[in-house]
C-alpha cells in the first residue's frame, strides 16, 4: 500500500522536475521576510506623509523645550550647590551634637559581641603567621626549607616501603596509639 503511494509520489516529483524550468529553492526565512515586507510596506507608505507633517511641529517644539531644559539644568545645579553648602554647615554640627549625647563605647558593648568579632578578626588575619613572616630571618627560612625537604623524604621513603610491603592502609597519623601490634605488615 505504502510502496504504491511512494512510487506514485516519486513519479509526480520526477515529472514536475522535468517540466519546471530551473525552479529555485525557497527558504522558510525568505518566505517570512517576504510576508513581513508585504505587511510593512503599505504601513510605511501611510506613515511617511504623517512624519513629514510632524517634522515642522517638532522643530517648533524644540525651540521652546531646549531653552526650558537648559534653564532647568542650571537651576538644579545652583540648588545642589546651595544644598551642599547648607549640608557642610549643618551636618558636622548635628553629628557632633549627636555624638556628644551618645556613649558609643557603651553602645558597642551592649549591641556587639566583641569576643566573637575579635576572634573572627584574629582567625582571619593569622596573626602568628604575620609575626613569624615579618620577623623571620634568612637562616630560619633555610631551616624551614631543610625541614620541609626532610618531611618530603620521609613521605617518599614511607611510600616506597609501603609499596614493597604491599600495604593497602595508610600509616598512623598519630603517635599515640591503642594498638600493640608493631608487625611490619
Amino acid at each position: 500500500m505504502h510502496d504504491k503511494r511512494t512510487k506514485r509520489m516519486v513519479a509526480i516529483v520526477a515529472n514536475s522536475d522535468d517540466q519546471a524550468p530551473a525552479r529555485t529553492e525557497i527558504d522558510g526565512l525568505d518566505l517570512a521576510t517576504g510576508l513581513i515586507g508585504l505587511v510593512v510596506d503599505p504601513l510605511a507608505r501611510v506613515a511617511r506623509p504623517m512624519v513629514h507633517l510632524a517634522t515642522p511641529l517638532r522643530h517648533r517644539l524644540d525651540r521652546v523645550l531646549v531653552p526650558l531644559g537648559e534653564r532647568g539644568r542650571h537651576d538644579r545645579e545652583v540648588l545642589v550647590e546651595h544644598l551642599n553648602e547648607v549640608a557642610d554647615l549643618l551636618l558636622p554640627r548635628v553629628v557632633a551634637a549627636t555624638l556628644a549625647r551618645l556613649d558609643l563605647t557603651q553602645l558597642l558593648r551592649d549591641n556587639v559581641d566583641l569576643d566573637v568579632l575579635a576572634t573572627d578578626i584574629i582567625e582571619s588575619i593569622d596573626l602568628p603567621e604575620i609575626v613569624r613572616v615579618s620577623s623571620a630571618s634568612v637562616s630560619s627560612e633555610t631551616v624551614q626549607g631543610v625541614r620541609i625537604q626532610a618531611v618530603e623524604a620521609d613521605k617518599a621513603i614511607a611510600r616506597v616501603v609501603d609499596r614493597v610491603l604491599l600495604r593497602r592502609t595508610a600509616r598512623s597519623p598519630s603517635p599515640i596509639d591503642t594498638e600493640v601490634d608493631e608487625s611490619p605488615g
Binding site: 624551614q144 625541614r147 620541609i148 626532610a150 618531611v151 620521609d154 621513603i157
Partner: peptide, 15 residues
C-alpha cells in the same frame, strides 16, 4: 602554616 598538616605526626626515617 606549612607545618600544620603534619605537626605532631610521627617523624620518618630521613628526618
Amino acid at each position: 602554616a606549612v607545618a600544620r598538616p603534619f605537626q605532631g605526626a610521627p617523624a620518618g626515617i630521613a628526618s
